[in-house]
Design a protein around this nucleic acid. Structure first.
Lengths: 139, 139
DNA sequence: CTAAAACTTAAAGTCAGCTTTAAGTCAAGC
DNA sequence: GCTTGACTTAAAGCTGACTTTAAGTTTTAG
């Protein structure tokens, strides 16, 4: 499998695959005439990486729990620790988003004469909306 | 009020205030000896900007609905439109985060022999986690 | 009067996860 | 054999919201 085929199968750009290799998330495959040739298990690896990025893990985190992961390596404590931390982040993000939602709804249904006043009337302090949140993709 | 005092009151860095001015979100104040001197209403303006960024609005969006906003300008249709759109984005984000949460929990409590297998066993397609999401701050 | 703190500017740097560019090499179909 | 498309590299560019830097000026405290 050439890089373009792999990329298309994973729903990524070929440059992203090369980037993963450079970042050390993906092993450098064999080459034919200088071009990368991937075995079929590379696809599941790439899909796993993509899945993890979609989960909100950074590439560094993924590299951490992927290091030494070959085919049927058991789910390690490393992964559990990272996933637990990420779960907490996701929960914080949900809490934050729910608060944002109710604030937005409050602002939308409020009959204050001005936005400035409205913000005051909802008693929004500078601290109110400061939460940690996970990195979420835009696309 | 000098810029440092304003910044401290708003919980921001002085450079952020200057940045808002450069981006056109904040009017250039009077100066004394080249240094910016702010009237007290500048603080509520800055707090409004900060509140909006915390809500997930971009500075460009904020500039849009802030343009022409002076003290008690009524809440405009511009703001309503933007806020409605943002509300939808926030709701999508919540839906996505809830899905992420259950996936993470599923992975954590699963007894699959490997992460790779687990991802397969949860029937995770490449498309599963692709949602639009709003920009959320990290701090 | 002096030293330190706070201010000024423009421009460059930061973060993450890629994408794009430039200038080439290789492979596949006709 | 030739064209076209896919591949190669390193390095630079992109996004957004700032921050940092460098080099200088002003204000304030003592």
């Amino acid at each position: 499998m050439k890089i373009g085929q792999l990329a298309r199968s994973a729903g990524l750009n070929a440059s992203a695959i090369r980037y993963y290799e450079k970042r050390g998330l993906l092993a450098a495959p064999q080459r034919t005439g200088g071009q990368r040739r991937y075995a079929s298990d590379a696809l599941s690896r790439v899909l796993l990486i993509r899945f993890a990025t979609d989960m909100g893990f950074t590439l560094s985190e993924i590299k951490l729990f992927l290091s030494g992961l070959r085919d049927n390596t058991p789910v390690g404590p490393r992964w559990k620790k990272l996933a637990t931390r990420k779960l907490i982040e996701v929960e914080q993000n949900i809490a934050r988003s729910l608060k944002l939602k109710s604030l937005l709804q409050g602002l939308l249904h409020c009959h204050c004469p001005s936005l400035q006043f409205c913000v005051n009337c909802l008693r929004l302090s500078p601290k109110l909306c400061r939460f940690d949140s996970i990195r979420l993709k835009r696309r």
